[in-house]
Design a protein around this nucleic acid. Structure first.
Length: 583
RNA sequence: GCGCUCGUAGCUCAGUUGGAUAGAGUGUUGGCCUCCGAAGCCAAAGGUCGUGGGUUCGACUCCCGCCGAGCGCGCCA
């Protein structure tokens, strides 16, 4: 409807230009909004004000000139000029009535569009280090990313979901060594477990697997393991302590066995993460390995490319990328003085690789604590002559958990964190997905556990789901009362009370809201829409009986109720929440 | 100190990218089941949109200062 009105307005401007009322090079700026108040029609435009200056006349005068040229649109019943120069459109009543049939025909396809023109777009999200199970902070990124991916698919993009597995680097060495130390403990060695190692119980589990499958094959005497190792905290430096242990582990085990322990830990955790996400309704098309970048020489290639373009220099034995030339606040090391490439170097190679794989648009969903990296990654792309605007970095703020009015304290390293699994088992997948996406992603949010758990009126998830279940219940009632549902008998023009016209209008807005949510990367728009729709439905349900004797009215109302149910289901599906028949 | 994000009802948050009288949920108060599911509905009350300037027909929205909050500023990942 909006685009039809847009055309109508453009035509009116064209005619004014033809008549000479406006200059030939006049370019109209057109905006249309859905009116909030029924007194202001169904849609309104502010074109008269927006273009008044360019037209060289007051807004109201421009509006008076435009309106006579907007008469030949069937769907429009009445056009009014109001206030400082708003033009309000009142639609014919039957415009939205025919919409109900359209929704019922299109079913799950209602609301979808081909706006994205099948453009290839990649969205990378979660990408948590596989050093432990996912926690509730990752959950928000997972829910947000998955919903955004669904939205982009819904409006016609060819979407690929990717998880970047950080399976290289020091953190992973700490993980492998943590497992090995626990294993040594199980094998009977006296082990003082480092304060900086991973403390969680899952480390014990992996160690136990290793011990069960390999017996003492990986055992080394504790004296050797701790030989020449710096003291741990608080007497010494915990970072040096763990680094020394890693060195000893590599030396004592040899590269092959070390890799075995490392891979066991890695694979176990990636598997745990994958299953966690799957049970949360989040699936990835690709699990992209960081290690693979190094092994295939892509990191070296990236650095070489920068070198060829003269974007790097040496200083203090390290290799620096001159990112300040591209908007970063300081230059960054890509290769350390010990010859190792940095995480940032991998990231450059990774992003090059994304575009080399042919994606026209790339989206990264990052935790907000990473916002400092945006400038340097974009700088790298610029330096490589890739278009930095094709990389979109969306930030997700952390969610603070609240229970009984108190903030739940969390810290990853100490092992005191609430896992995503725990949350899901606690409040349920539906509530978790709904709550995470309910708030704008770049805002801090308070996640109220008590509320999410609650199966009551307070909980907005149930509120929306309940509307869906209620319609299902009406359908059942019809069967029980032997009232056959026959939409051919429906007299849609009998839907004339304000609840019904409000609902019809709300339904008509769905495709537009979906598009807007996708374009703005703001899935919470869909949730707000569904809450509004559910509220209008509940109000209607309370005010009017659907199963009435008048066959024409009864079928019309049931048709409308079914349309509402369909749209609620479609919307819930997008955010990964179920639409139950009963609850 | 510098940078990023933010400040809207007692609380949690929206506000259609600058539009008409700033909204919803929750909480408080009071109503609505002989009726298709009360996990619902209706009503009241609650605001100097942190603050002071600026831009214009028009500002919660854009610009600047100040106050306050969170995050980031490694040859870690």
């Amino acid at each position: 409807m909006k685009s039809q009105l847009e055309q109508l307005i453009q035509q009116a401007f064209d005619q004014l230009i033809n008549r000479g009322d406006l200059d030939a090079d006049f370019k109209a700026n057109i905006q249309i909004i859905a009116s909030k108040d029924a007194a202001q029609g169904d849609f309104a435009t502010n074109v008269a004000m927006l273009n008044a200056k360019q037209a060289g006349m007051p807004p109201r005068q421009l509006a008076e000139l435009l309106v006579p040229h907007m008469q030949d649109e069937q769907a429009v019943h009445k056009i009014e000029i109001a206030g400082p120069g708003f033009i309000n459109f009142f639609l014919q009543a039957d415009v939205n009535q025919s919409l109900v049939r359209k929704i019922l025909e299109q079913g799950e396809r209602f609301g979808l569009s081909d706006h994205g023109a099948n453009k290839r777009i990649q969205i990378e999200f979660v990408s948590a280090n596989p050093t432990g199970p996912l926690h509730v902070g990752h959950g928000r990124g997972a829910a947000y990313g998955a919903t955004l991916a669904n939205l982009l698919k819904a409006v016609g993009y060819d979407v690929q979901c990717e998880y970047y597995v950080n399976d290289a680097g020091r953190q992973m060495d700490i993980l492998g060594t943590s497992v090995w130390l626990r294993y040594l403990d199980l094998a009977g060695e006296e082990i003082a477990f480092p304060s900086n190692a991973y403390q969680g119980d899952y480390i014990w589990d992996i160690a136990a697997t290793l011990h069960r499958e390999q017996g003492d094959a990986f055992r080394q005497p504790a004296v050797e393991v701790f030989k020449g190792v710096h003291a741990d905290h608080p007497e010494g430096d915990k970072e040096k302590h763990i680094d020394d242990l890693i060195e000893n582990a590599k030396a004592l085990l040899g590269s092959e066995k070390y890799r075995e322990v490392f891979d066991l830990a890695l694979n176990t955790l990636v598997d745990v993460i994958r299953k966690d996400l799957a049970q949360f309704g989040v699936e990835f098309d690709e699990w992209f390995s960081e290690r693979q970048l190094t092994e295939q020489g892509l990191v070296e290639k990236a650095i070489q490319t920068l070198q060829d373009k003269n974007r790097v220099y040496e200083s203090h034995g390290a290799l620096w990328f001159k990112s300040t030339d591209f908007g970063d606040e300081k230059d960054r090391v890509v290769k350390r003085d010990n010859g190792q490439t940095t995480y940032f170097a991998s990231d450059i190679a990774y992003h090059m690789n994304k575009f080399d794989r042919g994606f026209e648009q790339v989206i990264n969903v990052w935790g907000a604590d990473h916002h400092g990296y945006i400038a340097r990654v974009k700088a790298a792309l610029k330096a490589m002559d890739y278009a930095p605007e094709k990389l979109e970095i969306l930030l997700v703020q952390f969610a603070n958990l609240y229970e009984n009015g108190e903030k739940v304290a969390m810290s990853t390293r100490s092992g005191e964190f609430v896992t995503l699994r725990t949350l899901r088992e606690d409040v349920g997948s539906d509530a978790a997905r709904f709550f995470y996406v309910m708030r704008k992603a770049d805002q801090h949010m308070d996640f109220d556990l008590n509320l999410a758990r609650e199966q009551s009126t307070d909980n907005p998830v149930y509120y929306v789901q309940y509307a869906h279940a209620r319609v299902c219940s009406v359908e059942k009632q019809c069967a029980e009362q032997n009232k056959e549902i026959d939409f051919n008998q429906a007299q849609m023009n009998k839907l004339e009370n304000s609840h019904e016209t409000d609902l019809l209008k709300q339904l008509s807005l769905y495709p537009d809201r979906l598009l807007s949510a996708a374009q703005r990367r703001e899935p919470h728009i869909v949730i707000n829409y569904l809450r509004e729709l559910a509220h209008m439905f509940h109000a209607w349900y309370n005010a009017h009986k659907f199963i009435v004797d008048d066959e024409g009215l009864r079928n019309a109302r049931i048709a409308l109720a079914f349309a509402v149910r369909q749209v609620i289901k479609n919307g819930l599906l997008l955010i990964g929440v179920s639409a139950p028949q009963e609850m």
